[in-house]
């Protein structure tokens, strides 16, 4: 489903963010990506969405070779991926409902169906009562849940989540993780970047650890590894 072959990424100012990364993630897997701040986790997510292109190496996602994607195919490719961005990236001057509905507009779901899907999704993430609120008036945790609802509403085959519980209290974090596990059980491949040691250790999933742009450990039923 996702494969990286000796992928490196340096930013324009010369900062090397990822260095010779090789990864293979199969369809239906649930994977945690962990690592210290600045280790290159978000860079990895951005590469998988083709928001960035690698300096060298090859990335294949959902049978698309990302280095050979024409401009028109990029849009089509991105629709097969649900993303929760670390900084949410919500449309600020639209309300909660419109933000989630927009993902459905993009794939041309009929309005009648959108009116059923969006409220259902919002109550799943616990935001049913806030659908009219402008997103800039929401708390960090609420914005995070809107971003999650938008990522999930199209039922994508792949979900990339960059710290989807970073702004949530332990109880809400657990609820969201359970939701992601549930979605994974229905067949979606899930990649979660997180700093939440307790959850990682309790869920016993595959854990990939990145340190300074290098994959230092990749274990089934792994644990959160500290830098030492």
């Amino acid at each position: 489903m996702i494969s990286l072959e000796s992928v490196s990424k340096s930013y324009a100012n010369g900062v090397p963010a990822l260095n010779d990364v090789n990864l293979n993630i199969e369809k239906g897997e649930f994977v945690f990506i962990v690592g210290d701040s600045g280790s290159g986790k978000s860079t990895l997510i951005k590469l998988l969405l083709r928001e960035l292109t690698p300096t060298s190496g090859r990335i294949i996602v959902n049978d698309y070779d990302l280095s050979r994607l024409s401009r028109r195919k990029i849009a089509k490719f991105r629709r097969s991926i649900g993303v929760v961005f670390q900084d949410f990236r919500l449309l600020k001057d639209r309300n909660v409902y419109e933000n989630v509905a927009f993902a459905q507009r993009v794939i041309e779901v009929p309005t009648r169906q959108i009116k059923q899907n969006v409220p259902a999704m919002l109550s799943l993430v616990g935001l049913a009562g806030k659908y009219k609120a402008k997103t800039r008036q929401l708390s960090g945790g609420e914005q995070q849940r809107v971003a999650l609802a938008r990522a999930l509403v199209n039922n994508p085959p792949i979900l990339l989540a960059d710290e989807p519980t970073g702004n949530l209290d332990p109880r809400n974090s657990w609820e969201i993780m359970k939701l992601l596990e549930e979605i994974n059980k229905r067949g979606t491949t899930v990649l979660v970047v997180t700093h939440n040691r307790e959850i990682v250790n309790a869920m016993r999933k595959r854990v990939i650890t990145i340190r300074k742009g290098v994959v230092v450990s990749d274990e089934e039923k792994g644990e959160y590894i500290d830098e030492d």
Binding site: R71, R72, K76, R89, L91, K92, F102, A103, R105, V106
Partner: peptide, 16 residues
């Protein structure tokens, strides 16, 4: 700028 980038990142075609 920001709004257009977000739309593109969630897969909107140029036309849309």
């Amino acid at each position: 700028r920001e709004e257009i980038a977000i739309m593109k990142l969630i897969g909107a075609k140029d036309f849309v």
